[in-house]
């Protein structure tokens, strides 16, 4: 695979600017505030994850960055250029959540079409198409009608079409939606290959594992706002410091389990009681309390907090609610 980022060097006027700057962005749809004053900056070569549940405003934010949504207020700059300017469009690739492809064209014809829409012609277009087919591991299926490709292949082609014009900033909007685990791994490898070449990426997902695996920093988005933005470790540390979680499954009436968990500062989630503890020795006290309340312990585990628990901690809701 060739070096993607060196093939289309950033213009000198843009090189000094940050790949992405968002300042106090607001977008309303009627009474609904989809994006509520979001500000962030993205450094060159960084992969930023936007983690949040469905409807949190991630896709609207992405669409505002690519100039498909006009914000009510605020500013988006791509390498210093306004989001909907030709300069910004040339530097930015977009992988939409939908399969934005022509089903009656072959994989190769799709890539050629989108390449031409970005002004690529001749040898440059041929090279770009070849690189995309190689990157998406679709060389063998280049002549296949897109509608006949498997779900995973369509997803990969959808991603490749977003990179056909050799951008320096790529926005990926939940690129693994609806794909099987094997295809998901293939997509992760594609993204990791891009990262290794220094591509700047914005990656939206509501899968914690994806954000943990791929992203340098993670922005937790809820109700159109970024409620936390940092590295994974920092997010967890800021929320839990050195605390851990105890998850206990108890046999007994749900009402009694719930009351007991609440008395001990925990809560009942999916019929399991969850507690946050500072020291492992606190577990003994919990077990004694359960026995005293007439509850029989079925299962108990101690786990370090993760992004999902951070989200729960910050919003009071599950990430996939």
């Amino acid at each position: 695979m060739g070096d993607r980022t060196s093939g289309n060097s950033t213009p000198s006027t843009l090189a000094s600017a940050l790949p992405l700057e968002i300042d106090a962005l607001v977008k309303r749809f009627g009474q609904v505030v989809a994006v509520d004053g979001i500000s962030l900056e993205l450094r060159s070569g960084e992969c930023l994850g936007l983690l949040g549940p469905n409807g949190a405003g991630k896709s609207t934010l992405i669409r505002a960055i690519v100039g498909r949504v006009i914000p009510d207020s605020g500013r988006v700059a791509v390498f210093g250029a306004a989001a909907d300017s030709p300069a910004a469009r040339a530097e930015m690739g977009w992988v939409p959540q939908d399969l934005a492809l022509y089903p009656r064209l072959t994989a190769k014809e799709n890539l050629r079409s989108f390449g031409r829409y970005y002004g690529l012609t001749g040898k440059k277009l041929d090279e770009a198409v070849a690189w995309c087919l190689d990157w998406a591991a679709l060389q063998d299926r280049a002549g296949e009608l897109t509608r006949n490709l498997s779900g995973g292949m369509k997803r990969r082609l959808n991603m490749a079409a977003g990179l056909i014009h050799q951008p320096h900033l790529v926005l990926m909007d939940e690129p693994t939606v609806g794909v099987d685990p094997q295809s998901r791994n293939r997509i992760f490898e594609m993204i990791e290959a891009l990262r290794a070449q220094g591509m700047t990426i914005v990656y939206t997902t509501h899968y914690m594992e994806e954000a943990e695996r791929l992203c340098d920093r993670i922005a937790i988005v809820d109700h159109g706002r970024i409620i936390a933005l940092d590295t994974k470790e920092a997010l967890i540390h800021n929320s839990f410091a050195s605390r851990s979680q105890v998850v206990a499954r108890l046999d007994g009436p749900a009402g009694r389990v719930s009351t007991w968990a609440a008395q001990r500062g925990g809560r009942l989630v999916d019929s399991t009681a969850e507690f946050t503890i500072e020291r492992p020795t606190e577990i003994t006290g919990l077990l004694e309390g359960a026995a005293a309340a007439g509850l029989e312990l079925v299962d108990l585990s101690l786990r370090r907090p993760n992004l999902e628990t951070v989200f729960l901690h910050l919003t009071g809701r599950e990430l996939r609610d």
Binding site: V66, R68, P86, R89, P96, D98, Y102, F114
Partner: peptide, 9 residues
């Protein structure tokens, strides 16, 4: 696809 086309040139 229309969105994608309109986000190009």
């Amino acid at each position: 696809a229309l969105d994608r086309v309109l986000s190009s040139r």
